[in-house]
Design a protein around this nucleic acid. Structure first.
Lengths: 102, 102
DNA sequence: TTGACGTGCAGTTAAATTACAGCATTTAAT
DNA sequence: ATTAAATGCTGTAATTTAACTGCACGTCAA
């Protein structure tokens, strides 16, 4: 009754750093934590710590927006398209006044 | 460069109480603060204070998701469809793998 | 098997968020 | 002109979040 899942999705997307991570993962998937860190520095200009980026990635994963897989000792992060993004869109579309009243 | 507006939109939507307010405003528009309070009680079963609901409405308005107008001493709250909801959808749609890479 | 590499986990701090109460302000009605 | 109704504004406490530091763990290579 609380739709906890939408909470997680929208909260994950409410942070600019996390949205930029998603944007970069959509261009280049299977990125490790270090690669995401490096891209954050070069693209955003701010050097966030490895632990901070790791935390952001965990938030994105708990929301179902990205998926991970281990390649040896490296964890690859990729976009989980189609899944939760669509859930959020479905909710939003109900309030665009498609027909009118409902 | 920070897209502050998307921050506000997604953050506003990350709270279940606020999403339910939007859902009810889509059914019945031009609701006063007291009407929103009353609906929260009857629909959600939880009695949040007037100040708390007022704060939630302000968050929704600052995100551009609802609009307000004064009718005498009563402030009418209505859904701002088409506007910011569409902005959020546009952002999300880029990561649904429409074509593929981009 | 030793050591470097890639992550995870625990704990800290400052700032933001959510809930509330109390008082002030404005408007309509008597 | 008073009063009641509908909100706004200020401040407080508890919770959460975003950033960090430090240490520990598992894996691959030499």
């Amino acid at each position: 009754m609380e739709n906890e899942q939408l909470d997680l999705i929208f909260k994950a997307l409410s942070d600019g750093t996390r949205r930029r991570i998603i944007e970069r993962l959509s261009v280049q998937s299977e990125q490790s934590l270090f690669e995401v860190c490096a891209a954050s520095i070069t693209d955003d200009g701010v050097a966030l710590s490895r632990q901070t980026i790791s935390q952001h990635l965990r938030v994105l994963q708990e929301a179902g927006l990205i998926k991970t897989s281990w390649k040896g000792r490296t964890k690859a992060h990729s976009l989980n398209d189609e899944e939760k993004h669509q859930d959020a869109i479905d909710w939003l579309k109900k309030y665009i006044r498609s027909g009118e009243g409902k």
